[in-house]
Design a protein around this nucleic acid. Sequence first.
DNA 1: CCCCGCCTTTATGTATACACTCCAGTTCAC
DNA 2: GTGAACTGGAGTGTATACATAAAGGCGGGG
Lengths: 221, 221
Amino acid sequence: MRASERAYRALREEILDGALEPGAALAEVEQANRLGVSRTPVREALARLEADGLATAASARVLQVSALDAASIRSLYELREALEGQASRLAATRREPERFTALRERIADAPALLDAGEEGLRAYYDAVDALDDEIESAAANPMLGAALRSVRLHSARVRRLARHHPERLRAAASEHLLIVDAIVAGDAALAAHATHVHLHLSLRHALASIEARHPDGHRVA
Amino acid sequence: MRASERAYRALREEILDGALEPGAALAEVEQANRLGVSRTPVREALARLEADGLATAASARVLQVSALDAASIRSLYELREALEGQASRLAATRREPERFTALRERIADAPALLDAGEEGLRAYYDAVDALDDEIESAAANPMLGAALRSVRLHSARVRRLARHHPERLRAAASEHLLIVDAIVAGDAALAAHATHVHLHLSLRHALASIEARHPDGHRVA
DNA sequence: CCCCGCCTTTATGTATACACTCCAGTTCAC
DNA sequence: GTGAACTGGAGTGTATACATAAAGGCGGGG
């Protein structure tokens, strides 16, 4: 694999994991030494991270890991509502219910996975992610797909802040099931509204989580 | 200004103008010679264009100017509906009507500009673009703003294909006026729906334009 | 006559050297 | 003592050289 690709994935993973905390400096030479490549591929990786919104130029010459505070999470969810709502709506419009039959069962069985420890949790998220992928694919819109993938990076980052709440995840599974059923039924309006409902509840949970972790809402930046 | 920034803007302008036609190859050395810089800044510029969706990797080692056919225009408008609809909705929700008072008059007067030749046409589009900027700013959502700016690049590209139809532009001004009024009135649903209507009519016109120009719908790729 | 394989060529991917700018620390003048 | 200017350093921005791999052409064989 290309060195720039490896550097990009390594840095991205560390940002999503929180190993590189919000506000951490991303200097070319430092990262090049740490990753064992030259500045050139690191430079390319940093440019991609900035385009993704995972890194932000604090000044003309210093790049930082982007903040992840309540305000940016709200912004993210407003954007997700627009994009994922449209994706669900389009997926319903395409009338290809057979794409979702296997996936529906997988989502229906997902709550049981929450009693299967760490591995089950991973399987739960795999099922949810598979649904996202299928909706994106069914929407059959490359530009929307690109926007969704970008947004999913940030969602993954929020997910790792708010993870591990079985009660919420059980409810989320029901919400996802309703979305799938609306798509299968070809009910575009319901698909969009169910997505809205899911995101609303998910946002509420995410904000409560970070509030619990950082009582002062401005400390996470 | 940095050489990479100049290279990016020059190439972007040529793609939007159509000087670089869809499918044209974007080779690093060729563009570096043409623009009078080394490969390094050109490389960075090409990476940004690819991230923007204005360039597409045809194979592992050849980058081309992205296609601009009926299918990609439809995709663009589905994405625009999601993003601009949400932006209008949020702008209405924020309840800052005073931001739009001057702009409303400007849009109301825009149709008269269509009788003022080339310069008037530019002024017309400046007014429309100013409205887009103000809605984006009023929506107060950095992530949505970034997505909107990306989409606006592609919209500009389509605009130059379908330009110069005074009748359509007069109608578009009325549609924009309705959007502004809905935002000023704080009517989020109407703002979103008026945006939907505007995009629907705009898409119909764009598709008719390229159909007239390329009777075979697949020739523009 | 066609197809497979090798070779050449040409492009990209990476490393490195150099130039330049911005920031900080220090020193001097007021 | 404070402020401003100068100087040093660290980091980015660009150019270039080298490594590498994919694509196309040519030749030989079937």
